[in-house]
């Protein structure tokens, strides 16, 4: 049975999963969920995703949600078929540093990036609501405080978990690309301020798999 991705063509988390499927060269069927019609809040949907969120996957009857768990599953199952997007699981320390990098994205990047995306892109573009610029400024300064930490790491190594690209790097694209490209913020593309982060950003966002999905599904 073909791998099924249930989500929304415009949703960034859905796109994150599609990106990793492309990286690993896994054919999949995209099933659109009617988010505007609140399909994801129905009792039927909650059987698959108890929190009523998108996306989720169905891999021949194995149902999984939460994008980071899904992407790790894909990168593990098809490991031999695409790039190795995480270290050899038998290497305890390399694995721990990879897990550390995953948490860095979640603790220091995701929340501010999502909040900026909501204000700068979702609200004006899809909800016809004005951007709360004060909130954007607050979130940008929260994010900028963390970018020093990124710069320190990336001045010593090529990627967040070491010398090889991993899922932890790629997860930053999901909202990072959005706020840079559509939100018009410089942030980590500022070569004068964060030369190593800018180098890293250019590297991860020029991957063919990302270029193939960045326009949407």
């Amino acid at each position: 049975m073909v791998f099924k991705l249930f989500g929304n063509a415009r949703s960034r988390p859905t796109l994150r999963v599609a990106h990793i499927l492309k990286e690993m060269q896994v054919p999949f069927e995209f099933v659109a969920i009617d988010v505007q019609g609140n399909e994801h809040k129905t009792a039927e949907y909650l059987k698959k995703q108890p929190f009523g969120q998108i996306p989720y996957i169905d891999d021949d009857g194995f149902v999984l949600f939460e994008t980071r768990a899904i992407c790790k599953y894909i990168a593990t199952k098809w490991r031999g078929q695409g790039p190795a997007l995480f270290p050899d699981p038998s290497d305890l320390k390399a694995t721990a540093l990879f897990d550390q990098a995953l948490s860095i994205e979640y603790s220091n990047f995701d929340n501010a990036a999502v909040n900026i995306a909501v204000e700068k892109v979702y609200k004006p573009k899809y909800l016809n609501k004005p951007t709360d610029e004060a909130l954007v400024a607050e979130q940008v300064s929260k994010l900028e405080a963390k970018l020093e930490g990124y710069e320190a790491i990336l001045s010593k190594q090529k990627y967040l978990a070491g010398e090889y690209v991993t899922l932890a790097d790629l997860y930053h694209i999901t909202f990072g690309f959005y706020i840079v490209e559509e939100g018009g913020l410089m942030l980590f593309t500022d070569e004068a301020k964060y030369p190593n982060m800018a180098r890293w950003w250019k590297d991860i966002t020029s991957r063919p798999a990302w270029l193939a999905v960045k326009g949407g599904l």
Binding site: F51, Q53, F62, L64, F65, E66, T67, R68, A69, I70, K72, Y73, T76, K77, P89, Y106
Partner: peptide, 21 residues
């Protein structure tokens, strides 16, 4: 068991549930 792909995925799903919800 780290060799159990599906059980590991469900553990990571649970970790994300804590972090997101």
């Amino acid at each position: 068991d780290p060799g159990d792909l599906k059980a590991t995925a469900l553990m990571e799903q649970a970790c994300s549930v804590e972090a997101s919800n």
